[in-house]
Design a protein around this nucleic acid. Structure first.
Lengths: 338, 338
DNA sequence: CGCAGTTTCTAAATCGTTTTCGTAACGCCA
DNA sequence: TGGCGTTACGAAAACGATTTAGAAACTGCG
């Protein structure tokens, strides 16, 4: 079913058919209707490749997700991000495909891949922004939106990690806790923000946080939280509440706490981050901060469409999406102050 | 950078450039090398749309994943499936994009979407195979591979659910259990196979399974497992081990078991299905059956490439991927027989 | 009737690649 | 020299859409 067949059946030219289907001005209402009727009847679908070649618009977005580790899509935060992006992008008329570093047994740079597929925009999430190859992609002239990271000249959507940690700490403080520890994730820009917010918020609240209370583990790696948890519990004045890098990592802490014969939250309180399903399934229900991954994804899609359609006029924006404290049962009321 | 620019710079025709880059026979080695050198130097990338139009091959696969529910990608089994498929497809030279029911604010049938994008093959996973629209996609002439479901004329990759349940039950039987209950998922073809295997295996083992031992919950829905678990534990002769629909759903059972003041595995044993990360993180570590999602995905990609490249000659195959019992700590040794 | 203006349509070029078919050049042999 | 086979290359035609520039038809007006 090409445009030519419709033209023949309608007794008009392909130009007219094209214009009729695209709602151009200079085609009479009757002709337009006839063309559309015939097209529908023949089950016509335009050929994306042909259209793309002529218009140099593919109506597709490339998505860059970490492809090495298994954690690419498995993590609920990122799958939520992708879902939100996908849904909104499709609603606005763009399909999405994955940008990868391999194609046909050969290694290919991300930017090459994006150019090869002619994508109109790229969505960069869950990749190491330090890699020069990623920066090349962000800078290669194709509009891009990044997640939780700012390149200049590039729009970004960021989870409000500063306010998130702040809200969480204030909530915990409001439950009476004065000795709060933070086992944070490995060194990344996001971690920097969270730790900075933690320290600043504690300062504002007049809490004295010993250095030993701020320690490092690995995101999504429960085992990495066991030793830090053990060390915290063994301190002379242990914390009354521990913040974990994320909900998944919390499991490691929880295992360690139980192993020590302690109860949550009676003996020690704990909080996670992300607000994935798991956190709400566990008993006691985890107190955590829910990141609005879906909204982040859909905002990114809307922003990317703006960037594409405004072209040169577009001014990159930074969109901050707030999270929300999800009070669970793992942060109990602490009676006394430290 | 088009092929024409390379031609000019090399002083030859576009035909020669094309042939040189594609490794055709009738081009001298020197010319081929010169062309390739210039192409690399200019950072040439072919235009996928143009190539696709000419060859009517897009080197892309459409992927159909359930897009309504949130569970689309969040579930580790499906994200594993997708990851495996994606990696292998890209290795073989195919990009992947998502087929969806919406495009540009309009509703579109899956098959239309697939035709629009000219994809060379489609990968159908995690969708209700009962929907006529899905069947239309599978039948629309584009080679397709389905997961855990057989359409005729269509290749499929299936997890060996029969053997999986069988292995799991035999493992549990080997641990001394004689009263085994199965809380299975909602009515789907996969569930049918698992329940059939459960009954048959029990029969082979000479176990008498009362009707009340086989009951229904909902996949990935922990809450749905609470009541069935409660009912099982309240029976006059309760089971000594309960199989859950999947690892996630098990959490609901676990919560209920703990609420009753019982211990796992001392008082009651339990097993999951899927072998997602969560199962190995929990303490006690969950005894479960690991489905090899990654291998299923990559097998599907290989099979789809076969189907595409063999064309008419291709004979659809059904590929069965075995799972593996992951012995954890939730199935204990049962002392006596029932 | 002639002219200008408007509406509706079409011919043809174009996007970047692959592929077919033709042919020039060359070497070889009789 | 003529004929033949081989090798290396190029001209040109596709693929299916959009778009530009212009033509045809019609209207209205003096």
């Amino acid at each position: 079913m090409t445009i030519r067949m419709i033209a023949e059946k309608c007794g008009c030219s392909t130009a007219t058919v094209s214009k009729a289907l695209n709602g151009a001005e200079d085609v009479s209402r009757e002709t337009a209707e006839r063309v559309r009727r015939v097209a529908a009847q023949l089950g016509y679908m335009p050929n994306a490749a042909a259209r793309s070649m002529r218009t140099s618009r593919s109506y597709s977005f490339g998505v860059l997700f970490r492809d090495n580790a298994d954690t690419g899509l498995a993590h609920e935060f990122f799958s939520g991000l992708l879902n939100g992006f996908k849904r909104q992008a499709e609603e606005l008329g763009y399909d999405i495909f994955f940008i990868s570093g391999r194609l046909g047994g050969r290694t290919i740079r991300y930017a090459e891949h994006a150019r090869y597929r002619n994508c109109d925009g790229v969505f960069i999430a869950n990749e190491s922004y330090k890699k020069p190859e990623v920066r090349e992609l962000a800078d290669c002239g194709i509009p891009a939106v990044t997640i939780d990271y700012t390149y200049d000249g590039c729009a970004s959507v960021q989870s409000d990690n500063y306010q998130g940690v702040r809200d969480l700490v204030r909530y915990i403080h409001g439950m009476g806790h004065r000795r709060i520890a933070f086992i944070h994730g490995e060194d990344t820009p996001v971690t920097d923000v969270r730790v900075a917010s933690f320290r600043q918020t504690c300062r504002e609240l007049g809490l004295d946080i010993p250095e030993a209370y701020v320690t490092e583990a690995v995101y999504c790696d429960p085992a990495s939280c066991e030793a830090p948890t053990r060390r915290l519990l063994a301190l002379e004045t242990p914390p009354t509440c521990i913040l974990y890098p994320d909900d998944t990592a919390y499991i490691g802490g929880r295992n360690e706490i139980y192993r020590q014969g302690l109860r949550i939250p009676e003996d020690i309180s704990a909080a996670g981050y992300d607000g994935i399903d798991l956190s709400q399934i566990l008993r006691p229900r985890l107190t955590t901060l829910k990141q609005n991954a879906d909204l982040m994804g859909s905002s990114a899609a809307r922003e990317l469409v703006q960037a594409v359609e405004q072209g040169k006029d577009y001014i990159p924006r930074r969109i901050i999406i707030p999270g929300q404290v999800l009070p669970g049962e793992t942060v109990g009321r602490a009676g006394e102050t430290a």
